[in-house]
Design a protein around this nucleic acid. Structure first.
Lengths: 190, 190
DNA sequence: CTGGCATGTCAACGCTTGTTGGCCTACATT
DNA sequence: AATGTAGGCCAACAAGCGTTGACATGCCAG
């Protein structure tokens, strides 16, 4: 039993193609306008295959949007730079693939998407704030403040595409947002 | 001729009812899920009336989302409090009616909505930054930074409904966000 | 070679959507 | 009172949606 896991099936490539197409469509169009037919067309297969492998549209969305924010270890670095590291990390994460943009687009009109968004951001950012926040009881609130600035910039830069937000360089965004995030994380309660 | 304007028509009430229902539905459901039939049902009229008065769905949306942010006069107050005034004003504006929430929901999946959002926020906040920003050439960029924090909090509080964001009081939100906005407006370029 | 199972296509279903045109009603003007 | 017109409803259309089940094809084990 050297291979206890399920053997690689021939359909794995198809499943992956569907997932890729789904991510792209959800990111570009949001939940309602990303139709199963269009996703299937992109993946060069029949719409019924989507149903076979993912049950229904909601199942496909859930499968296409499994996210790990992969927030880096922060114990190692000086507490003063947590803000900059966090902002930089999120910029990388957002530009790496379409999944986060898709999540944001979908979560605005789809309750399941919103729930997922709440769990991901409150949970994974909350883990950070719990470590650096001077008032542990306020960790959840600090996490939401951080999320509001991160998501707001993502909205302006990747979804609404405000001209100046798109044109700013990575370093400029970090220079402006890092102090904000740093303050939300570590400042005394105002 | 004391009434040069068009005389009040009997259908004005109906038109207004349609617009009210449309605003509510767009705010609650976003563009695609806010159906003309549902809006008509809310307004207690036939769907065809919507077409008669507003042409098509997009026309209805345009009519339902004419917005003036009504940013207050700021020349009168000390420059140091501009941030707090601005944040407080936007909270009021957002909680006063559903129009801004609707705009935000729609603009994420609808290009016309996004264009409208860009024009409104870049334009009307830009007018403020042009007055108080130490580097006039950067006014547009400062405006977008302010918008990113304002919209991010609106997203967390009114759309995604993050628990802690909903529970914060008006004063708490202002206390946290005002310094951020103030810095984006008046700080030297980092 | 033969059977069985995974993979994939095809055609259709029931439903909802935006949108249209015809028809009835009630008011306002003459 | 007669009539033109604005306000409103009804029924229907074509298109698109998610979803389903029957049928063809390929692959691999026996």
């Amino acid at each position: 039993m050297t291979e206890p896991a399920t053997a690689p099936r021939r359909s794995d490539a198809t499943k992956a193609a569907i997932l890729d197409a789904a991510r792209e469509r959800f990111a570009a169009d949001g939940y309602e306008r990303a139709t199963i037919r269009a996703i299937a067309r992109d993946a060069n297969i029949d719409p019924s295959m989507v149903m076979r492998y993912y049950g229904n549209k909601e199942g496909l969305f859930v499968a296409a949007s499994s996210i790990d924010l992969r927030i880096p270890e922060l114990g190692a670095l000086p507490g003063k730079h947590v803000g900059a590291v966090l902002v930089g990390h999120f910029l990388d994460r957002w530009e790496g693939d379409d999944v986060l943009t898709g999540m944001l687009r979908v979560s605005v009109t789809n309750e399941a998407g919103a729930e997922r968004m709440r769990a991901i951001f409150a949970g994974q950012i909350g883990a950070v704030t719990a470590g650096v926040c001077p008032v542990p009881a306020e960790a959840a609130r600090r996490a939401v403040l951080v999320a509001s600035q991160i998501l707001g910039m993502a909205l302006a830069r990747y979804v609404l595409r405000f001209g100046p937000a798109v044109e700013m360089s990575r370093d400029e965004v970090i220079a402006w947002l890092a102090p904000t995030v740093q303050r939300y994380l570590t400042a005394e309660t105002p």
